[in-house]
Structure formats: structure tokens, C-alpha cells
Nucleic acid binder design. Structure first.
Length: 790
DNA sequence: GCTAGGTTAATTTTT
DNA sequence: TTAACCTAGC
């Protein structure tokens, strides 16, 4: 966040940028190779433009070319363009690509960044308008929750029944919708044990006192300012002559309002997005924003990017067929010039472990090139799951067979305990009044300051109206905290004073950081720790200090970290990637595996329960995102049994599997596996046994009284589906064909004797494989002729 | 203040 | 099943 705050700095940069590009005589180089649609999107500079960019259609290319076009044609200087993204990664990428297009780095694009970083920058200039100082701190989720916890306790609410995390979610929801406490409607304010609105107000008040914001506030405050201060708004309407928005389908109400306010004047706003890839509804994104664009901006030019450069025709057709089941789309048809390629593969497995085993073998085979394709390195292969707990089966399996993998997502560097602790020390050095930071480290490392001592500090601080650090100093002076704790606190207070002095004095912030970690005893704490992770933590601390080098001072670093929580370490080694579907958005791989396509898991039961059809459609978009990540080979799989929270459950293939167009799917016969039952993937399509083919009718079945009765009758069975209503599944009645003592045959386990039945599950003592629990559909009655008892 | 054992809940996640 | 979180008890 350092560098370009000075207006004239980017004025200068802008001049040199366009001038140089022009002088170099390649004013149109960035247009080379654009297809007609991309070109149209690039050249429609004036007025509202909606760029509907399907997966793999060269969206970033068009977007960056558009910026290059604005600059080179002299329509705008870098400082005139507001370009917002959701992630730092996207912003970085865009900067790089613009730089490449124009043949130089674009350090002069001061307003290209994430919604949050741009808003933070704006808010620092106008903080006083919402009662903050310009050096406010930005709290992360962890701080937010700790703060809320305090407020909940203070409000005499049972924190166990009403967890702070939940309140945080509610408040975030309000902020996403640009609702300040006074705007939360009566009924809604009654959320959270009837105290939601009140706690929200208290929380905002507390943030102001702490001179802090949370992430949601960055936008909320800016919307508030723009709405209440026409002069400020106008200033930025004039400054931002052109507005570009990436991933518009992911914007929430607050972001939408913010953009609309800024674009109101000239209406030069270009939004890029894909309604079919809207997968963040659960965190406030409004697909409606993109669906409504033409109404919001009458006369908008809508450009569709539909030529796909990523995937084979089968993959595209499968994805298109699937997404067609969603209602209320803007509509796009992806096409490609590429011909041929593999169909999407579909395979059913016995259980989750087997699925993992099979995928592991496939990956190895593909890497060796024994699948009729050129070898695909591990870096080119990915497994995309719906929920992160599904990763475990793969990790377990891959560790066993020694297949290198990397998990994308998960806890990030700056969210790690030791990093957050160290950061709290830095924060305290920069701002001694940062109470949250003080609280975090006051007894880390252990200083013998327990609840009681901390209460004394709190009380002293409140009575004197000072920060906790000052309160601690006073308490020490007064001798209110005795013994070991008192001495340790005295040292901490002295240290904090020293560090703050050092910050003010300037000097090397790297040396200071090292000194802080040293003098506080923090480094020593981990050195003394004998647990296996201690070494890694020390390593991380070193890395943290190293990261400081890129900044001029601690303040700059802290701002950076507050907003840029990613750290993608380069890892050159060949590894399979495992990640969630959400994390996969925007990525592509030659080979993609999509496991766990089962009712209840994907689409997620919870999603459907909570948001009904809306949730289901978002799940379907997630499936669409998954398939469209694949360039050459996409393999969808499901398991007939899966352990869910320790319980074995029978699983039904996902309804999304039914929705795949058959012509583009290759149903693999599981090699040497079971031969009967629904698990035999051939049955995955509703083609057999009188399936209902009509989609509308299928939806009807789902909502019909008959279906509901059916679901009820299924009783304890957690996942009933339309498929069952259609009789596609061997249900409880079929089970009665088997009784204890019957001889049965299983493709994998061979012959065995039924020892028990329970609903549609059988317990079978197999002659060779031992006792197994399984679905009746997976076995057939043994015929005397075949069955050779031993 | 720490640890062991019991209880509870269990998507998706960026900033 | 498991992992995180919290409460007793040392």
C-alpha cells in the first residue's frame, strides 16, 4: 500500500506511460489476435458495457487490452482509471499483463486493486467523515470475533448458545448489504437472541473507539461517505473517468452501491463477469447485480465472449448441458474450434477409499502416458472437491502410495498463530493504543498474567480512560499486580515503550522487528518448545522478518498484511493439486478429477436446505465451474458408500450426473468391479427402468406430495432423491429378497453369506474378504451352479 | 496455569 | 470420525 499516494506521482507516471507506448509505434499491438467479440469489448470505451465472459474465453486478455486501449489512445491516464478485482492475485495479474502489453511496468495504475484495498486507500483520506483517524487499523476476522465475544459477554448473553462467530456472520451479512446499524430493519435486528441490532451498534461504536475497521467497514464507510457527502463523491466521479470491474457476478450490495455511485456521472463503467460462475452467494454476492446490469445502466452494450480457448468440445458440451438446467441465466453458448478429444468420463465406485485409490492410479497412469494421451505431469492434474473434508481420503491415499500432492487453500501464512502473534507485537510498537494487539500478546509468551491480572489491567485502563498498555503501566506503578506477573508486565510495558520510540525514531525496521521478537521472549518461547511444529514456526518467523525487507517501515508492512493475506510460495516440484471447487475458480488444468458427485454431498444438502432452489442452482454453477476447469480430460466420479461423520451411509449419484448430456459422456465400466445395482454406472442416466426424462417433470416430482411422502417414508435414510421416486434405486423392498443365511455374490468380494439385514444394507460374511456392510444393490443372489463353497 | 478428558458440531472463503 | 473447544481438576 505504499508508493503512489501522491497525485502528482502518478500524473507523471501516466504521461510517460502513454507517451512511451505511442512513441514506440505500437499503439495497436495489444489488439492483435483478439477475436471480434473481444475486440468489440475492448473498443467500446464510452458508456456502460457488460462483458459476459464465459469460462476460458480470454476475459483477462480483453480486460487488460481495454485498459491498454484507454491509455494508448489517450482517453485516460493511469490515474483516471478505477479497476477493481476481488483478489490480490487477480489485481497482480492484471497489472503484470497490462505492463506486458504496454512494454513496461504499470506502476502508474494507482487505482487498480481489490475493492478492499482501493476503499482502504480512499477511507484513509476521508476517515474523519466517519469518526476515524486516517491511521485506523484494519482488523481481521480473528480480531473481529474476539471483540464480539467481549461484547456478547458484556451484554450478559450466554456465549455458548450464541457464539460470536455467528454474530460475526450476521453483521458481515448486514455490511455486505450496506446496512449501517440504524438501517437494519426491526425484525432483522432481532436476530441473535433479539440482540443483534443492539450488538451491531455496540460493535461499531467499539470499533470507532479503537480507531479500527473490519473488512466490511472499508466498503460500508465509503458508501456512507459517498451517500452523505456529495462533494466527496463528485470529486471521485470526476477523478475516475473509466471504471472497470472484474468478476462482477461476485459483487455484493455494498460493492454494487459503491460502483453505481461512482459511475453515476459519466457512466463509463465496464463490468466483466459470468453469471454461470457465481458461486459466492453465501457470502453476500448477488447474482442479481449482473442480471440487472442492463436495467441499471440503460443503453448498456452487452458483449458476449463465447469462444472458448481452454477445453475440448466434449468438456464444453457437458458443462453447457449441465448449466442449461438453471433458470434465470443471461445465456451464453460456449463454443470452440478444437475438435475431438476425450469425452467426460464418469465412473462409480464402491466407497470413498476406492474412489481415492482409483484416482491415484489414474493420475499415475496419465503421468506415465499410458492412457492414450501424451503424458500429463502432476502439475497438470487436479482434484476438485466440494468440501475440504473430502481432501482427506486423497491425502491419506497419496501418502500411502507416495504420490506428491499439494493442497491449495487452507490456512494462509498470515493466519498462522505465530505470525499473528508477531504481528500483534509489531502493531503494539506502531500503535501503543492498539488494545486488541495488547490483549493478544500480554501473556504470550507466558508471563504469569492470568485472568485476574488481566482484569486488573482492564479496570485500571477503563477507570483512567486510557489504553490497555497505559493501564498496565499504571497498574504496575501502583503495585496492583504483584509477584512474577508484575515484574514480567513491568518489563513488557518498558519494552513496548522502547519499541514505540524506535518506530518513531525511524531506523531499521528489520532490526527493530528482530529486537521485538527477541526482547519480548517470543522467539525464545518457540525455541524452548519441543513439539514438532516449533521448528516450522521459527522458520515462519524468519520468513516474516524477511518479508519486511520489501517495505520501508513497519506501518507500511502492517497495512499490506491487513489487506493482502495471501502468500503463494513457489513450488517447482511436480505435484497433483487438491483443492475445493471454490478455490479452483479461475484456474485450469489439462486433467481434472471431480469426485464425490453424490446427492447431499454435491449438491450439498445444507446448501439446498438453507437456500432451496437458489442454493441448488449455485451448486450447479459450482459443478459447471468444476467441469470447465478441465482442458483435455475431465473425470467425474461418485461412490455408493461413504463414511459421513463416522457413520456409513449409502450414497446416491448426484442429480447433476443425470443432467450431463449423454452424448458427451463416457461411462467407464469399473474394471473388475461390481456388476449390478445402481452403482453400475450405466444406470446413472435415467435411461433405464422407466426413468423420467423430462426435466421439468423431474423438478415436479421433487416437489410433489408423492415425492415428499416418499422422502418421509425413506425415514432414517438420509438421502432420498427423485431417483428413488423413480424406482431407479433398489430400495428397502428389494432388500427383502435377502435374508440371513442367503448366499450372495459380490463382484469384488466374491461369495458370502448374509448375516444380517438393516434397511437396504446387508451385513455379509464373505468367504475370503471377511465381514462387510454393503448395499443390497451391490450383490446378487448366488446361484447354486456358480457357487462353489470351499 | 496447564493438561486431560469430555462435549459438540461438522460447506464453500476473500478481504 | 475427528478435531476444536471448553471445563474440571491438579
Amino acid at each position: 500500500m505504499s508508493g503512489f499516494d501522491e497525485d502528482d506521482a502518478f500524473e507523471r507516471a501516466s504521461l510517460s506511460l502513454s507517451a512511451r507506448a505511442m512513441a514506440a509505434g505500437r499503439p495497436v499491438a495489444y489488439l492483435d489476435g483478439l477475436n471480434p467479440a473481444q475486440r468489440a469489448a475492448v473498443e467500446a470505451l464510452e458508456g456502460p458495457v457488460l462483458m459476459l465472459a464465459g469460462a476460458g474465453t480470454g476475459k483477462t486478455r480483453a480486460l487488460t487490452a481495454r485498459i491498454a486501449h484507454l491509455l494508448t489512445t489517450g482517453h485516460a491516464r493511469p490515474g483516471d482509471i478505477l479497476a477493481v478485482t476481488f483478489t490480490n492475485k487477480a489485481a497482480r495479474e492484471m497489472k503484470e499483463r497490462i505492463g506486458r502489453l504496454l512494454g513496461q511496468t504499470v506502476e502508474g495504475m494507482p487505482w487498480l486493486g481489490t475493492f478492499h484495498s482501493v476503499c482502504a486507500k480512499l477511507l484513509r483520506r476521508h476517515a474523519e467523515l466517519v469518526g476515524l483517524k486516517s491511521n485506523f487499523t484494519i482488523l481481521d476476522t480473528d480480531d473481529q470475533i474476539r471483540l464480539l465475544k467481549q461484547l456478547i459477554v458484556a451484554a450478559n448473553i450466554d456465549e455458548k448458545r450464541w457464539p460470536a462467530r455467528q454474530l460475526a456472520g450476521i453483521i458481515d451479512g448486514w455490511k455486505n448489504r450496506a446496512l449501517t446499524p440504524d438501517r437494519v430493519r426491526g425484525g432483522e435486528a432481532g436476530a441473535f437472541n433479539n440482540r443483534g441490532g443492539e450488538l451491531y451498534a455496540a460493535y461499531q461504536e467499539r470499533l470507532r473507539t479503537l480507531n479500527a475497521t473490519d473488512f466490511g467497514d472499508l466498503l460500508l464507510h465509503m458508501v456512507t461517505i459517498f451517500q452523505a457527502q456529495p462533494d466527496v463523491l463528485e470529486q471521485y466521479q470526476r477523478r475516475f473517468k473509466y471504471i472497470l470491474v472484474d468478476e462482477y457476478q461476485d459483487t455484493n450490495v455494498a460493492q454494487y452501491l459503491w460502483l453505481r455511485l461512482l459511475a453515476q456521472g459519466h457512466r463509463n463503467i465496464c463490468c466483466v463477469g459470468d453469471d454461470d460462475q457465481s458461486i459466492y452467494g453465501w457470502r453476500g454476492a448477488e447474482v442479481g447485480n449482473i442480471l440487472r446490469f442492463e436495467k441499471d445502466f440503460p443503453g448498456a452494450k452487452v458483449v458476449r465472449l463465447e469462444q472458448n480457448y481452454r477445453s475440448t468440445e466434449h468438456i464444453l458440451a457437458a458443462a453447457s448441458g449441465l448449466i442449461a438446467a438453471n433458470a434465470g441465466r443471461l445465456g451464453k453458448t460456449l463454443w470452440t474450434e478444437a475438435r475431438g478429444g476425450e469425452k467426460v468420463r464418469l465412473i462409480g465406485h464402491w466407497d470413498g477409499e476406492e474412489e481415492a485409490r482409483w484416482i491415484g492410479e489414474e493420475i499415475e497412469a496419465l503421468a506415465r502416458g499410458t492412457r492414450g494421451m501424451a503424458p500429463v505431469g502432476l502439475n497438470g492434474q487436479a482434484i476438485l472437491v466440494r468440501a475440504s473434508h473430502q481432501m482427506r481420503a486423497f491425502e491419506d491415499r497419496f501418502l500411502t502410495i507416495g504420490l506428491p500432492y499439494r493442497v491449495i487453500g487452507g490456512p494462509r501464512f498470515y493466519e498462522r498463530l505465530e505470525i499473528r502473534d508477531a504481528m500483534a507485537y509489531f502493531r503494539l510498537a506502531v500503535s501503543p493504543e492498539d488494545d486488541l494487539a495488547f490483549e493478544r500478546i500480554v501473556n504470550t509468551p507466558k508471563r504469569g498474567l492470568g485472568d485476574k491480572a488481566q482484569q486488573v489491567i482492564q479496570l485500571t485502563a477503563r477507570q483512567n480512560g486510557v489504553s490497555l498498555l497505559e493501564g498496565a503501566a499504571l497498574a504496575v506503578q501502583a503495585g496492583a499486580i504483584g509477584g512474577k506477573g508484575g515484574a514480567a508486565l513491568r518489563e513488557l510495558v518498558a519494552g513496548a515503550g522502547r519499541w514505540h520510540q524506535a518506530v518513531r525514531a525511524g531506523g531499521s525496521h528489520i532490526e527493530l522487528a528482530e529486537a521485538i521478537l527477541d526482547e519480548s521472549g517470543y522467539t525464545a518461547m518457540w525455541q524452548a518448545d519441543k513439539t514438532p511444529e516449533a521448528a516450522g514456526r521459527l522458520e515462519n518467523l524468519k520468513e516474516l522478518v524477511k518479508a519486511l525487507e520489501q517495505f520501508e517501515n513497519l506501518q507500511g508492512f502492517l497495512e499490506h498484511v491487513a489487506l493482502i493475506m495471501d502468500n503463494e510460495s513457489e513450488d517447482a516440484a511436480e505435484k497433483v493439486s487438491i483443492m475445493t471447487l471454490h478455490a479452483a475458480k479461475g484456474l485450469e488444468f489439462p486433467v481434472v478429477f471431480l469426485p464425490g458427485w453424490e446427492e447431499g454431498l454435491f449438491p450439498s444438502q445444507r446448501s439446498m436446505d438453507e437456500t432451496g432452489l437458489k442454493g441448488l442452482e449455485e451448486e450447479r454453477r459450482l459443478a459447471y465451474v468444476g467441469i470447465t476447469r478441465a482442458e483435455e480430460l475431465c473425470t467425474i466420479s461418485f461412490a455408493g458408500n461413504r463414511r459421513v461423520y463416522g457413520q456409513w451411509q449409502s450414497q446416491l449419484p448426484s442429480r447433476f450426473i443425470d443432467e450431463l448430456p449423454e452424448a458427451h459422456v463416457d461411462v467407464l465400466t469399473p474394471p473388475g468391479l461390481y456388476g449390478g445395482g445402481y452403482g453400475a454406472a450405466g444406470m446413472a442416466f435415467g435411461a433405464t427402468r422407466g426413468g423420467i426424462e423430462d426435466r421439468a417433470m423431474r423438478a415436479d416430482v421433487y416437489n410433489s406430495p408423492g415425492w415428499k411422502r416418499m422422502a418421509e417414508r425413506a425415514g432414517s435414510r438420509p438421502m432420498a432423491s427423485p431417483r428413488e421416486a423413480r424406482g431407479l434405486v433398489i430400495d428397502a423392498e428389494a432388500v427383502s429378497a435377502f435374508a440371513p443365511g442367503d448366499r450372495v455374490f459380490h463382484q469384488k468380494f466374491g461369495y458370502g453369506t448374509v448375516t444380517g439385514t438393516e434397511g437396504d444394507k446387508l451385513t455379509v460374511a464373505f468367504d475370503k474378504a471377511g465381514e462387510k456392510k454393503l448395499l443390497a444393490g451391490f450383490v446378487v443372489a448366488a446361484t447354486a451352479a456358480d457357487d462353489v463353497p470351499f
